[in-house]
């Protein structure tokens, strides 16, 4: 038994004489002192509990059924009960959610993790020597620059540019040949990655993809995209990284 539990027992008249409490008091001068200090108050409460006249209680179900009557029950007291219920319900809900401070820490942690993953993913792809975003493409990234270019909101076009800028920039920009099956696969993977997570209209997304690829002279790409619309729903980036 610790001192906190000892205080619980001291203030409970049913437990005040328990062996466990007595053992604690015998070994803890601080609690013993507290017990002696509070003894007059305990005595007074014990006496009051035993002797406080209870009067003539009280209520039966018949009384309760008459509760809509005006004699005892006022609208105000029902409001008191309802307000108490709302308050307790709110408290009960609050207990199940994360405290605000914890939420702030969690948000900071997640943001840091996301940023780290982004940097690592970007560096990893650079390291492969296969894909390297140009400065212009990076500025198109809606994730890094929410107001990049003329895109003020998250559209299919911005989503695609965001993704492709990092993950498969070479295939779109035309730095590498886009007719090879390998590059086409990489581009598709990038698009799936982006579009699977960010909610955009599929048709809109495909049109945007077609338009973007035609601008970069990649007709093979465009035909590949059209044939794989179902794959867009699946995140290739996440799947590749387990």
């Amino acid at each position: 038994m610790n001192c906190d539990q000892a205080f619980d027992c001291l203030t409970d008249r049913h437990l005040r004489d328990s062996d466990e409490l007595n053992r604690h008091l015998a070994n803890c001068p601080r609690c013993r002192q507290m017990s002696e200090t509070l003894e007059p108050a305990f005595g007074m409460f014990d006496s009051a509990v035993e002797n406080l006249p209870l009067g003539t209680p009280i209520l039966s179900q018949q009384d309760a059924e008459r509760s809509t009557g005006p004699v005892l029950l006022s609208l105000e007291s029902i409001r008191v009960a309802e307000a108490a219920a709302v308050e307790l319900k709110t408290d009960a809900g609050r207990n199940t959610v994360m405290p605000r401070r914890m939420m702030r820490y969690a948000a900071a942690f997640l943001a840091g993790t996301a940023a780290t993953m982004l940097v690592l993913a970007f560096q990893g792809e650079r390291g492969d020597g296969q894909q390297q975003a140009t400065a212009f493409q990076l500025t198109q990234c809606s994730m890094l620059f929410p107001n990049a270019g003329s895109q003020s909101k998250w559209t299919a076009q911005s989503a695609m540019l965001t993704c492709v800028a990092c993950h498969s920039s070479a295939s779109v920009s035309g730095d590498r040949p886009t007719t090879s099956g390998e590059t086409d696969k990489a581009a598709m993977s990038s698009l799936r990655t982006c579009l699977a997570c960010h909610v955009v209209d599929l048709d809109d997304a495909l049109n945007a993809a077609d338009q973007s690829h035609s601008e970069t002279d990649s007709s093979a790409h465009a035909s590949g995209l059209n044939g794989r619309t179902a794959n867009i729903l699946r995140c290739g980036w996440l799947a590749a990284r387990g």
Binding site: G55, T56, P57, I58, L59, D63, A64, S67, T68, L72, L73, S74, S77, I78, V80, A81, E82, A85, V86, L88, K89, D91, A92, G93
Partner: peptide
């Protein structure tokens, strides 16, 4: 006694707002 009786009656009248979460 009046207040206790009123408390019971109020709880009874507002029983619909009771939620077993508390």
């Amino acid at each position: 006694e009046d207040v206790v009786q009123e408390a019971f009656l109020a709880a009874f009248a507002a029983r619909a707002t009771y939620d077993c979460r508390f």
